[in-house]
Amino acid sequence: MNRAKSTLEQWRIIQSVVDFGGYAQAAEKLNKSQSSLNHAVAKLQNQLGIQLLEVRGRKAYLTEQGEVLLRRSRHLTQSVDELEQLASNLGQGWEPNLTIAREIIYPMHFLVDALKAFLPDSRGTRVTVIDSVISGTNELIDGNKVDLAICGVPPKGHIAEPLCESELYLVCPPNHPLTHCGIVADERELAQHLQVVIKETSINKAADTGWLKSEQRWTVSNFHEAKNVLLSGIGFCWAPAYLVEDDIKNGSLVRLILKGSKSRKIQLSLIIPNRDSQGPASKLLESMILTQHEISHYHGV
């Protein structure tokens, strides 16, 4: 049997160098010396007889061959991580911690009610809820960083259980110039005004999504901050209906009807990133979330 020329640790190091933007940044994140990372990558390249990285300035860049091998290596290290996690779950039984990714347009009251139902049988499990946005949610799923995830467009290769539809309204303050012709907004006119958008939570820069044609944009972390900007009297924003309906009713905000698009509707789904390693606590909480949407739970707990 031929002995492997490389180790998982070497591949994890080169992944970190690429993901964090250089040797110095990766060394800080991994709590290792920069020289040890340089040595590990140099040894790997020597063992394989191929250059994976080239340094330009202070940043390391993948070669064409490096891109191909790094992509394959991610599948390998992820498979090993999943195998080790499965062994850990089988050994420990009930999970002491659960992490949930929640796409921020998902109504929080559904999740709160599910967690309240989960609490009496949770056996002290600590729960962390991460508010995530678009590709940031998918990044957490693909990286197996969470136990459960509620997302919009599911990443490829994952089975999703549809939960509900979230409707987004186009809103602005009542004194905004866009309200001068009633509640209908023209797309070209809309593009001339300040748009308030929500920052994606992905580590790796993702392509812009949604309606982003305004030249002037302010980016904030969540819809509560976006609403505060609007209530101060400036900007427009696509915001979840459940979050702004009361403000529309009391006149604090005005709903605009964009020609050709009365509203935006996004399907939200529940994903278990790694079903094979799902523990009993995660299965129970999954059933509680599905119950909130009157969906039968088919997996044994």
Rank of each mutant, 00 (worst) to 15 (best):
S6R: 08
W11R: 03
I14R: 00
S16C: 12
A26H: 02
A27W: 00
S36F: 06
S36G: 01
Q51V: 08
R56L: 12
E64M: 06
E64P: 01
Q65T: 09
Q65Y: 11
G66C: 02
R71C: 04
L76N: 05
L76V: 15
S79R: 04
V80C: 07
N89I: 12
I104W: 01
I105R: 04
P107A: 15
P107Q: 14
H109G: 03
A114E: 05
L119C: 12
D121V: 10
R123A: 13
V127E: 04
S135V: 01
G136H: 01
N138Y: 04
V153F: 05
I159P: 03
C164Y: 12
E165L: 14
E167V: 10
L168Q: 02
C172Y: 04
H176L: 06
T179Y: 06
G182I: 04
G182V: 02
E189I: 12
E189F: 10
E189A: 11
V197G: 03
K199N: 14
E200K: 04
E200R: 03
E215A: 14
Q216D: 15
T219Q: 13
V220A: 04
N228D: 15
V229S: 05
L230C: 06
A241M: 10
Y242I: 07
I248E: 09
I248Y: 05
K249C: 10
G251S: 09
S261D: 15
R264N: 13
I266K: 06
L270V: 07
N274A: 09
R275P: 00
Q278A: 15
Q278T: 13
A281N: 02
S282N: 08
K283G: 01
E286D: 08
E286L: 11
I289C: 01
Y298K: 14
